[in-house]
Amino acid sequence: MSLEQDIKQERFTNEYEKMVVNILFTSSWIYNMNSARFKQHSITPEQYNVLRILRGSNPKPMMLADITCRMIDKNSNATRLVEKLRQKGLLRREICESNRRQVDISITEKGLAVLKKIDLETESWLEPLKVLQKNEAQDLNHLLDKLRG
């Protein structure tokens, strides 16, 4: 279905305006698919992002500022996300022994187990996106990188 049909708008000022609306609309569409995917694991896409970041540094703990700068959505409240994940037992926060002002954050075994379950579902979750051929996905990645560059 075309963007025009999806949002019921016949015209755009120009192709650049349409491109921006299309990126925003598609981003929201993917976000909603992700939300539904993670809901069964009782986490949000933003919490998933934090867990993936922590898994990438595991077993080395991270500071909140380092997590924040790696997050996809820079507007997310990382402090709140970390606390919610701590309450669920998916990560731990500990005062650094060598610097009492530093809080080290690391993923727990329970957090790793949740990510492992999600990883097993990833291939089937990606299936609807495979309407694009691999080379088309590479081209799209290149174009999006170029746009941000």
Rank of each mutant, 00 (worst) to 15 (best):
L3W: 07
Q9F: 06
T13N: 04
T13D: 06
T13W: 05
N14T: 01
Y16I: 13
E17H: 14
V21W: 06
V21R: 08
N22G: 08
N22S: 13
I23L: 07
L24R: 03
T26D: 02
T26I: 03
S27E: 10
S27D: 09
S28M: 14
I30V: 06
I30N: 01
M33E: 12
M33A: 09
N34D: 12
S42C: 10
S42H: 11
I43E: 01
P45G: 04
Q47L: 02
I53W: 01
R55W: 02
G56I: 00
S57F: 09
N58P: 00
D66G: 15
M71C: 00
N75V: 05
R80I: 06
L81W: 06
E83N: 12
R86H: 11
R86K: 13
Q87L: 11
L91Y: 06
E94T: 15
I95S: 09
S98W: 10
N99R: 05
R100C: 12
R100I: 14
R100F: 14
R101M: 11
R101F: 15
Q102W: 14
I105H: 01
I107R: 07
T108A: 06
T108I: 07
E109Q: 14
E109T: 12
K110E: 15
K110G: 08
L112M: 12
I118H: 09
L120S: 13
E121F: 07
T122Y: 10
W125M: 13
E127P: 02
L129H: 02
V131G: 01
Q133I: 01
K134T: 04
K134D: 04
A137Y: 06
A137M: 12
L140V: 10
N141F: 10
N141R: 12
D145H: 14
K146D: 11
L147F: 14
L147W: 11
G149S: 15
